[in-house]
């Protein structure tokens, strides 16, 4: 289990970005972090994995505080995929191999290569293995980066808007993949996401951020019309359609006719 306790962050004392964030995650759960722009979603992810140093708080993974660990140890517990990934002239295989960086001393071991091989195969990236990552598509790059994060063998995987630059097909593929990873490999996943419908479909729990604080945290039951409207400051309808719950935003002054 992963516990985030009393996490607070701010650039200046009087303007906090995050205030007293506390929540628990079970190891196979996929948590969606939702909230408006500037609610502190990305900052929360960066604080959890120590890219930004929170003023106070702990992140306990199996009872140990990762924030007080050495970077290398931390990278064995937490993996992070940034919102924008830089593509450079490196092959997919070598990029994924970098996920073993926290374990490599002087040279990558045979086991490292085998794990990379296995993961690339599982993620269906075999065809691309020797392609340079600046030559593949955005969706493929996102999958490569998630694969790299998995090769770190983390307990907690943090994804910052993994679907924001992808077309619908890739959005669904990537999120389905994330859900599958959480279940199969027993990894807790925290994903910052803007698409409510993707979140409703693929995530188990929802962390709603508003005004630097947790507004609500819970399962599907908290995702009601009034809560979502409050968070996003826009009226919404939640409907059941073809067995799937969908959120339909209704900007004020617009008429929407439900048939």
């Amino acid at each position: 289990m992963i516990q985030i306790n009393e996490l607070s962050f701010g650039y200046h004392k009087h303007t906090p970005i995050l205030e007293n964030i506390c929540f628990d995650i079970e190891k196979h759960q996929c948590i969606a972090v939702l909230g408006n722009n500037g609610a502190g979603k990305s900052t929360l992810l960066k604080c959890i994995n120590g890219i930004m140093r929170p003023q106070q708080g702990t992140v306990l993974v199996q009872g140990k505080d990762v924030l007080s660990m050495h970077r290398k140890e931390m990278a064995k517990n937490l993996a992070y995929v940034a919102q924008k990934n830089e593509a450079t002239k490196m092959t997919v295989f070598d990029t994924v191999l970098l996920g073993r960086k926290p374990y490599i001393k002087w040279e990558a071991a045979k086991e490292d290569y085998e794990l990379v091989e296995k993961m690339i195969d599982q993620m269906g990236l075999n065809e691309l293995k020797l392609c340079y990552i600046d030559e593949i598509s955005g969706g493929e790059l996102q999958k490569v980066m998630i694969t790299r994060a998995l090769v770190q063998q983390p307990k907690l995987l943090l994804l910052d808007e993994p679907t924001s630059n992808l077309d619908p097909k890739n959005q669904y593929e990537v999120m389905a993949m994330v859900q599958r990873i959480a279940k199969e490999q027993q990894i807790a996943v925290v994903v910052v996401i803007h698409d409510l419908n993707l979140a409703l479909r693929y995530c188990d729990r929802f962390l709603l951020l508003k005004d630097q604080k947790i507004y609500a945290y819970g399962g599907h039951e908290i995702m009601q019309e009034d809560t979502i409207s409050e968070i996003y400051r826009i009226p919404v309808k939640v409907e059941q359609y073809l067995g799937v719950r969908v959120v339909i935003p209704i900007p004020e002054g617009e008429q929407v006719c439900f048939v």
């Binding site: 960066k46 994995n49 120590g50 890219i51 970077r71 290398k72 140890e73 931390m74 990278a75 064995k76 937490l78 993996a79 992070y80 940034a82 990934n85 830089e86 970098l98 996920g99 960086k101 926290p102 770190q152």
Partner: peptide, 8 residues
């Protein structure tokens, strides 16, 4: 940021 999260 990517490098940091890889333990560098």
């Amino acid at each position: 940021q990517g490098a940091k999260s890889l333990g560098v």
